[in-house]
Nucleic acid binder design. Sequence first.
DNA 1: AGACTCGCTTGATTTTTATCAAGCGCCGAT
DNA 2: ATCGGCGCTTGATAAAAATCAAGCGAGTCT
Lengths: 229, 229
Amino acid sequence: MRASELTLVRNLPLFHEVADPHFEYLTAAALLQRFPPHVVLIDEGALPDFLHIVVEGSVELFAAHDGRETTIDIIRPVTTFILAAVIRDEVYLKSARTLTEALILMLPAEKVREVFSKDAAFARAVVNELALRYRGVVRALKNEKLRSSAERLANWILKSDEQQGRAGHVTFACDKRTLASQLGMTPENLSRNLSLLSKHGIKSGSREIVIENRSALSAFAQPTSLIDG
Amino acid sequence: MRASELTLVRNLPLFHEVADPHFEYLTAAALLQRFPPHVVLIDEGALPDFLHIVVEGSVELFAAHDGRETTIDIIRPVTTFILAAVIRDEVYLKSARTLTEALILMLPAEKVREVFSKDAAFARAVVNELALRYRGVVRALKNEKLRSSAERLANWILKSDEQQGRAGHVTFACDKRTLASQLGMTPENLSRNLSLLSKHGIKSGSREIVIENRSALSAFAQPTSLIDG
DNA sequence: AGACTCGCTTGATTTTTATCAAGCGCCGAT
DNA sequence: ATCGGCGCTTGATAAAAATCAAGCGAGTCT
């Protein structure tokens, strides 16, 4: 593994305070692997062998049941995913697959649990990470149950614009099919919702969205830190 | 506070391994309070002052936004709730109110965080608790997004029957309005779904449900440990 | 260049769920 | 026992979202 990637991981809040020997112990047995797009990394129902960390690319967390499928989250660098199953040594509740080509660091689950029980600083960092993720899922649940699909889209546009520097034009990082799934709607309804939102301050092109009237969009979206973070 | 309640709390996985002086420190400043039904204990958006523990009665976690409201979970004794906000010292994302009369133990949030940073055993117990809760919310999200309202009800019946000893008859712990909210449907649809399920092995009375054909109900419900735990 | 592919859009229809509006029945109070 | 009240049920309607079915259009391949 290259030093640059190790540094990236070392700088994650999760590993920043871990004692040097413990960090070396974890990474000595780590695997750094490059995957093509659309490869399944984790199958729900399986027991965790590794703690996964996205170093490059993006990963979709999803779940399937009885023929239906739903996207739960999209993970971008540099982030761990599905920590809870690793810590509790219980089956994964979600599956994971690459969306793009991706570079994934995998730390042996057993060693993560070992360091967790020896290294108090790591244990505290795990708590913070888990608490953060917990809050993320609660937000997702509220977003789903308290908003219509058009409102979810409107808030996604506002949030993406923030992340892209409030420039007033949002570019799609993935195809619309994936975006629709992420927002909990069909591609058809994403299309309809985009044209609906043209009545609320946006203009949507094929590759980007332009925010022409932020306050109108905001009035429709009703963003709140209690859902949108 | 009475010794019997202290013992109950002490026996929670969260507090079982905490060093004696730390446990005493936490509980010395604790408040044990009895609340009438339908009292709001926590307002989403507020900063946490206490870690709450339900000792008796039941508490509903819910969230509201833009005139809509949704039940997120029902908490029964003996359990802590909304630990993540306390640990991170960030605003609550959910509100809480008593459903029945309830006895609530409240530990000062500041002291919880203090013991958390001093007591490694407590930190590890917090991780386990948070990981468990995290998985609970993921299950709730999957239940919501991968199932119809009738399927949620069918699985609720099966699960309640398990918890009541597989006797084949489930009694309602709360009124149907509350149950409907918990299952993410209107009271009208709960009623319709109950009559729908009479085609799938149940007989529903006003105070209880009888499972007449468990395998038929199960075939309709498609229960799975990846959602139902 | 022309035709093809594939992703996106648009329209029509169905399913699911919520909302509105009566009606029914159990239970307590008088 | 009878009268009200209230929670539950039932029916009719409406809204939201999924599904089915074409059509369009920006790229690519030959």
